[in-house]
């Protein structure tokens, strides 16, 4: 204890600088959490958060969600789409980062990097416009080509077989370059002497990739994976809301789109809060357990 006080006194300037950050979290991140209490209340705008009556029974809004005939489907969709986005979405960023890292021409390298992360700044509305231009069944480039050469069109945007592929594919296109940035930063931090030593021992480029680059960024990969698991129930509301249509609801309706439609229609804030709480709890559980597992391999976040 005395030691702790002593060390605080010794680094008091640093602790002082920490204060604004702590205050930020207390005010903007922790205090609003009390608002989650409306998940257990029948929230009414006039009465406000505290005076609104308690829901009877307390799990009323959770039950509302659970009893929806679509509960199973939207939960499964949310998990699957998220999982696909993690499984298929992480490797392209890693591979791209390693490819860019291997480029020796500095200006070309910069150019590739810029071009590859630009899509990150496009909104989903624009991306949907582009997807439509390529894949539309009536006038998309791909389908015109298919029609001319194999006399058969594919309903990419209205078929339940294709829709998730399109979702994941467009997500990868948008975010691969952006996620490569963090891996590139990690790659830049690898000790260059390791590469020199490997070269002396006669290792080729692929050998070095496999034995030096990849292990070098392993901790960053695990870190990002754990962070992504925390958001596993956020399957990408903006994207799906813009892209889906009634044909593909069975494979694309996720928790957020459901809450948006139901909540908007009936101004049910308590339902929204209940579902948000449910999502956060699952996310927390996943993050904690993923970290446990990662720690066993000596890579945990904390």
């Amino acid at each position: 204890m005395a030691k702790a006080i002593k060390s605080i006194r010794r680094y008091q300037a640093l602790y002082l600088m920490l204060l604004p950050g702590l205050a930020y979290y207390a005010v903007y991140r922790y205090a609003p959490m009390w608002g989650s209490v409306i998940a257990f209340k029948d929230f009414n705008i006039v009465d406000g958060i505290w005076s609104s009556p308690w829901a009877n029974p307390w799990y009323k809004h959770f039950a509302y969600f659970y009893n929806s005939p679509y509960f199973g489907q939207i939960l499964a969709n949310t998990f699957l789409i998220s999982l696909y986005k993690i499984v298929w979405g992480m490797p392209p960023g890693i591979i791209l980062a390693m490819l860019i890292y291997e480029v020796r021409h500095a200006r070309f390298k910069k150019w590739i990097q810029t071009v590859s992360y630009l899509p990150h700044f496009l909104s989903w509305v624009i991306i949907y416009g582009m997807v439509f231009a390529f894949l539309s069944e009536t006038n998309g480039i791909v389908n015109r080509w298919l029609k001319d050469y194999i006399f058969h069109t594919v309903p990419f945007l209205t078929s339940t077989d294709w829709f998730r592929t399109i979702l994941v594919g467009s997500e990868i296109w948008q975010s691969a370059g952006w996620s490569a940035i963090i891996y590139l930063a990690a790659l830049a931090g690898i000790d260059p002497t390791l590469y020199e030593a490997a070269r002396c021992d006669g290792a080729g480029r692929l050998r070095m990739l496999w034995h030096i680059s990849l292990p070098g960024i392993r901790s960053v990969i695990v870190l990002l994976l754990i962070l992504k698991l925390g958001h596993i129930l956020d399957a990408g509301f903006d994207q799906i809301y813009i892209m889906y249509n009634v044909h593909v609801y069975p494979v694309s309706d996720i928790i957020d789109t459901w809450v948006f439609r139901v909540g908007l229609e009936q101004l049910n804030f308590s339902l929204g809060a209940a579902v948000g709480l449910f999502k956060s709890l699952i996310g927390l559980l996943l993050v904690v357990s993923a970290n446990r597992i990662a720690r066993r391999w000596g890579e945990g976040v904390w």
Binding site: F132, E137, T138, N139, T153, P155, L157, T158, N245, H247
Partner: peptide, 21 residues
């Protein structure tokens, strides 16, 4: 019938009509 009827959003259908589809 336009096979993408259900996926047409905004004025997409009007544009298709104007383009002579």
């Amino acid at each position: 019938v336009d096979p993408e009827l259900m996926a047409n959003k905004g004025l997409k259908d009007q544009q298709k009509a104007f383009q002579g589809m």
